[in-house]
């Protein structure tokens, strides 16, 4: 909020009637708070289940705060080799994949913000893929034919440019004044130098926004893994989680638990795996929310 807008708010406060909580205000607030709690509680509940001992959970499954703490669910999850290998795979996918996404999107968006012979054809070439695609089997056959099956690349290369992000990025480049580029050109810089040295530093907030968008998508990767990955050691974290949750038999007592005579607490372990999988997004989200939102609003408010 700008200082001016805040000033206007103060002005309203002076007119007392506008700023008093009316009956309707209370109802609107109550509804929004209720809906927010409804959205929030399932996540909170998952955290509680993951840190509560089984006996307590069975007695009282609707919890508002933890009555007793137990770290065995997390111990189980972190002793699980599949979780670790999944995490390593997912980190690799996220790092390489995001760099690949951002590089392709930024270079393409920058070029499309300039005029050159054949531009219309390039735009049509890109847009056509929005209306029509090969579909599941043709893509699957192609991945198989080029030998990407069961490799990390099968989860990285097929998702390159998101057309909607490309459009938002181009719109952002449009908003940078032309004089910036022109003056650099007069100084004798070529287009590549102008882009990397002059324009990209100005577009940095937007680039960061897309690093985050693509990064989250990469962290959430599981579908390409489901299609193209055969060996368990190469599965991404989300796919490992999916198997733990969907296949209860996969949760078996580890050696140390057997010795101690503990039966694993299925729900607790599943929820601990959920929390571990969503941890980076959960922790970073509140701090990065303004970047998350800025990508949407640049695209939304058409200039």
């Amino acid at each position: 909020m700008t200082a001016q807008a805040r000033g206007q708010g103060a002005l309203h406060a002076g007119k007392s009637k506008l700023n008093r909580m009316t009956f309707t205000d209370v109802w609107i607030m109550a509804f929004l708070v209720f809906f927010s709690l409804l959205v929030f509680y399932p996540f909170y509940n998952s955290v509680l289940i993951s840190i509560t001992p089984q006996a307590v959970y069975i007695r009282e499954p609707f919890m508002l705060w933890p009555k007793a703490l137990d770290k065995s669910s997390y111990q189980y999850v972190f002793e699980n080799k599949a979780i670790w290998s999944g995490m390593i795979t997912t980190i690799q996918i996220t790092l390489i994949g995001t760099a690949y996404n951002v590089f392709l999107t930024v270079t393409m968006a920058y070029a499309l913000n300039h005029s050159f012979p054949g531009k219309k054809f390039v735009i049509a070439f890109i847009m056509f893929t929005m209306y029509f695609s090969g579909g599941l089997i043709p893509t699957y056959m192609m991945i198989k034919d080029v030998g990407l099956m069961n490799t990390l690349w099968a989860m990285i290369l097929p998702s390159g440019v998101s057309i909607s992000y490309l459009m938002v990025m181009r719109k952002f480049f449009q908003s940078i004044p032309e004089e910036v580029e022109e003056s650099a050109k007069i100084d004798g810089a070529n287009d590549l130098i102008i882009m990397f040295r002059v324009v990209l530093p100005l577009a940095l907030p937007m680039v960061i926004t897309f690093v985050i968008y693509y990064g989250v998508e990469r962290w959430n990767e599981w579908y390409n893994g489901l299609l193209y990955i055969k060996s368990a050691s190469k599965m991404p974290l989300q796919l490992v989680l999916r198997q733990i949750v969907q296949n209860s038999q996969s949760i078996q007592a580890s050696e140390s638990m057997q010795e101690a005579g503990i039966t694993p607490f299925g729900d607790g372990i599943k929820m601990a795996a959920v929390i571990v999988t969503m941890f980076p997004v959960m922790v970073l989200y509140p701090f990065l929310q303004k970047y998350f939102v800025s990508g949407l609003t640049v695209g939304a408010v058409k200039g």
Binding site: T107, M108, G135, I137, P138, D191, M195
Partner: peptide, 26 residues
């Protein structure tokens, strides 16, 4: 516009390889 084409190349290759080539499977 040579640098523009150079900048477009990676993206165009991506669309050709992963969006157009699979269409032969249709």
């Amino acid at each position: 516009s040579r640098y523009m084409y150079l900048l477009l190349l990676p993206g165009v290759l991506f669309f050709a390889m992963f969006r157009y080539v699979p269409m032969y499977g249709i």
